[in-house]
């Protein structure tokens, strides 16, 4: 994953009417915008923010799953989970690399995350309490991510679109390995089935929140749509996700924890109950169960790795100096 409906980017921009109209005309012709092209400051700022949040989400998303690598029930599951978590690290790196083309540095982004200033998807501030959660995350969280990311493959900003194409190729494995875990539990002993149901109960609503605030409350959505950074509204994507996922839960014999959920024969869509937006905002703003741990873990990993980064740079410098000395001696 995992870009949430973008949180709080300022898309206001001060360029001349002509400049903006010429830019919009390029967008409307479905031309891709590349890093050195002229672009409105608001477009650049929105993308730096969105790609940054997306990258941070991939990286922080490694933590709840990494928590279970040593406790995976079989070697097969452990190998799959390791590969998945490694993929998420890769996703973070593709995205940081896309953001860097816009002139923001990796260190700047890392500092913002570690200082708790950068946002990331609210879903990762929930704890992974049981093994079933690893299955549910692959199924629901990566499933929601896929819904979000497929349209981003057509984003107007070239480097972001290209990064998304790579990411999307890898997500299907994530979702399938998750669903397989849940399926094994759902078909297992009554205790295992209870575990699967409990996990679905806890992750269903937070997964729906991954699509971001409702369209009516999503302030910067419209500008992002006009600039073709995003192609579908938060609510549309959420609806697609529900329509795809409810039958998958039924197949497993699990119950989606929404008493108001019903299928509307006329529209062909599921209708869902009210989402608890207070919880959403609380978690986004740092009040989730795991916010503090996630940032503390990232900070520890960064600090513990400092000597490696320093040593690698010192070694590179030494090699360079030695090479230069050899060249000089040869002259």
């Amino acid at each position: 994953m995992y870009s949430q409906g973008l949180i709080g980017a300022d898309s206001s921009t001060t360029e001349s009417e002509e400049f903006l109209a010429a830019f919009q005309a390029r967008i409307d012709r479905e031309e891709k915008i590349e890093p050195n092209d002229p672009m409105p400051e608001g477009y650049r700022r929105t993308l730096v923010r969105q790609i940054g949040q997306h990258a941070h989400s991939e990286i922080v998303g490694m933590l709840p799953e990494g928590n279970w690598i040593t406790r995976a029930p079989t070697l097969r599951r452990k190998a799959a989970l390791l590969a998945k978590v490694q993929d998420e690290g890769g996703h973070g790196l593709y995205l940081y690399s896309a953001a860097e083309t816009l002139g923001v540095s990796r260190d700047q982004m890392t500092e913002e995350l570690l200082a708790g200033k950068a946002k990331y998807s609210s879903i990762f501030n929930y704890p992974t309490l049981t093994w079933a959660d690893i299955g549910t995350i692959g199924w629901l969280v990566d499933g929601a991510a896929i819904m979000n990311q497929i349209p981003l493959c057509r984003c107007s900003f070239g480097p972001y679109a290209r990064a998304m194409i790579r990411v999307c190729k890898e997500e299907s494995f994530h979702q399938r390995q998750g669903y397989e875990i849940v399926m094994t539990l759902a078909k297992g002993t009554p205790e295992q089935k209870r575990m699967a149901q409990d996990s679905l109960d806890r992750w269903w609503w937070p997964s729906l929140m991954m699509f971001g605030p409702s369209d009516s409350d999503s302030v910067h959505s419209e500008q992002s749509m006009t600039w073709k950074i995003k192609r579908f509204s938060n609510d549309d994507l959420r609806q697609k996700f529900i329509d795809a996922t409810v039958p998958q839960a039924e197949y497993l014999g699990l119950k989606v924890p929404d008493p108001d959920l019903r299928f509307n024969e006329e529209t062909g869509h599921y209708e869902h109950g009210e989402i608890d937006w207070d919880e959403f905002w609380r978690v986004v703003k740092g009040g989730g169960k795991m916010n503090r741990d996630r940032i503390a873990d990232r900070k520890k990993a960064w600090d513990d790795g400092a000597w490696v980064r320093e040593a690698a740079l010192a070694h590179a410098e030494k090699r360079r100096a030695r090479q230069e000395a050899t060249l000089e001696a040869a002259e």
Binding site: A83, G90, E170, A312, H315, R319
Partner: peptide, 23 residues
Amino acid sequence: CGSVHAADEVLALQAARDVYTRR
């Protein structure tokens, strides 16, 4: 296909392999 951060060319090649050629 993208970029990586690395102290030198040896580490850059390793990072590029891990990040961009897992499959």
